[in-house]
């Protein structure tokens, strides 16, 4: 049951201001995205058409605090087929970016940020790795953390790595 008094009619405008979310209101709910989604085929939790309806209706809290917004595989199958050019992977990213600013970041993404902040890459480069590379005649790989740390500081991402990022 949807409680109309709890809906936020401005949520869709908030999304439209976010890069990637511009086309959200173009959706006419045909369901092409959901029908062609490889994640949906295996997991009922993820339903892009439903997420877009919830967003347009203004179910701000439900959408931003949900786990399902993190299930988009970013495969772009829906983007290529959407007759209304809603550009769903970008839209999902826009929604996730808003959710993160409200303090709702999925733990696996926080973990990735921590690794990036510590090593400048998604995988740590150990001495063992470089020895193995040398054995195959491949050049040494470095971790360049300074650049990424400076960028994380500039955009405020450092805070997400360092603390628990207080919820809304």
């Amino acid at each position: 049951m949807i409680d109309v008094s709890k809906l936020d009619p401005n949520f869709k405008y908030e999304i439209m201001k976010e890069p990637g979310g511009e086309h959200v209101t173009r959706c006419f709910a045909c369901g092409t995205c959901t029908a062609t989604c490889p994640v949906r085929e295996m997991n009922d939790e993820y339903n892009p058409r439903k997420i877009i309806r919830m967003a347009i209706l203004g179910m701000r809290q439900e959408v931003l605090t949900s786990d399902f917004i993190w299930l988009c595989a970013s495969c772009y199958t829906c983007e290529e087929r959407c007759p209304q050019d809603v550009r769903i992977p970008g839209l999902m990213n826009a929604i996730k970016n808003i959710a993160v600013r409200q303090g709702h970041i999925h733990p696996s993404f926080r973990a990735q940020l921590e690794v990036l902040f510590a090593h400048g890459r998604l995988y740590e480069i150990t001495e063992f790795d470089n020895k193995k590379r040398a054995k195959w005649g491949l050049p040494e790989i470095r971790e360049n953390v300074e650049g990424i740390r400076k960028l994380f500081r500039k955009t405020g991402m450092e805070k997400l790595v360092k603390d628990e990022g207080g919820a809304e």
Binding site: E18, P19, G20, W70, S74, M92, N93, A94, K96, N97, V100, I105, F109, Q112, L113, L116, G120, R121, L122, P139, E140, I141, R142, E143, N144, G147, I148, L151, F152, K154, T155, G156, M157, L160
Partner: peptide
Amino acid sequence: IPEFSCCGFPVKSVDRMTFMLMAAE
């Protein structure tokens, strides 16, 4: 180029600006 680092892909869902800066670098 030894200074290359992560392309930015994993940060796209978290913060678009950071992701673009990582790619641009």
